[in-house]
């Protein structure tokens, strides 16, 4: 049974999502309303999936995502946000979230997204694909030789995701296997996360932060 934790500062939303996911056969093992308690509880109960809101009162879901991924590497974070702030979404994904869904998504979509996140897939909305394409373009234009780049195939796949095609539709159109499409999508995310970690490490070394950056 997939073990899920829900992080949101709205009690009514937490209960609603917990009840919904419970009815779909998930085991809701914890809830939290702010970033510090989310990190503490996730480290203790080690859920398979954390459903994470990005604006947690005065604390940030982006910080919580980064710290949870560091403290519990097997835990995957699915961002479920009403946030209209695209930069927040991009930051969360760069800091280790493996998917993003808007709160207006239906229960079926949420069920599917949590299931796929637990299976290790990246859950991409069209909007997130567009943000990633933009981020790779920004990195491409930036004067940094180490910046990650997309292969032609990855760009093609990401572009089709941004146009609302499902992995299955993309597989049909490009005559690829469904698994290959999923892998391409995951790679676009992993490269960005890896780059982000390298950047953080470099920053830490340059600024003489002595804590082990890993």
């Amino acid at each position: 049974m997939t073990r899920v934790m829900i992080v949101d500062d709205h009690p009514m939303w937490r209960e609603s999502v917990a009840r919904d996911l419970g009815s779909r056969g998930y085991d809701v093992v914890g809830t939290a309303a702010d970033a510090p308690s989310a990190v503490r509880i996730a480290a203790a109960v080690r859920p398979d999936v954390v459903v994470m809101d990005l604006q947690l009162g005065t604390t940030s879901g982006v910080d919580a995502t980064r710290d949870i991924v560091a403290a519990a590497p097997d835990t995957r974070v699915l961002v479920l946000s009403a946030s209209a702030e695209q930069d927040d979404v991009l930051d969360a994904v760069k800091n280790g979230a493996s998917g993003y869904l808007v709160k207006s998504a239906s229960l079926d979509e949420l069920d599917d997204a949590v299931g796929r996140t637990a299976d290790g897939d990246a859950v991409f909305s069209a909007g997130l694909a567009g943000l990633l394409l933009g981020e790779y373009r920004r990195l491409h234009d930036a004067p940094d030789d180490d910046a990650p780049t997309l292969t032609e195939r990855e760009t093609e796949v990401l572009r089709l995701v941004s146009r609302g095609l499902s992995a299955r539709q993309i597989a049909t159109r490009l005559t690829l296997s469904h698994r290959t499409v999923e892998n391409h999508v995951q790679n676009t995310l992993r490269k960005l996360q890896l780059h982000n970690r390298v950047e953080l490490t470099r920053y830490a070394i340059e600024h003489g932060i002595t804590d082990d950056p890993e």
């Binding site: 709205h10 939303w13 609603s16 919904d20 604006q55 009403a82 209209a84 709160k103 207006s104 229960l107």
Partner: peptide, 22 residues
Amino acid sequence: LSRSIHDGVLQVLAIVRRRGTE
């Protein structure tokens, strides 16, 4: 304004949507 709309109105709309469908 954007932040406070997020915390209030958007959340409530999302909840109404969710419960209404159920």
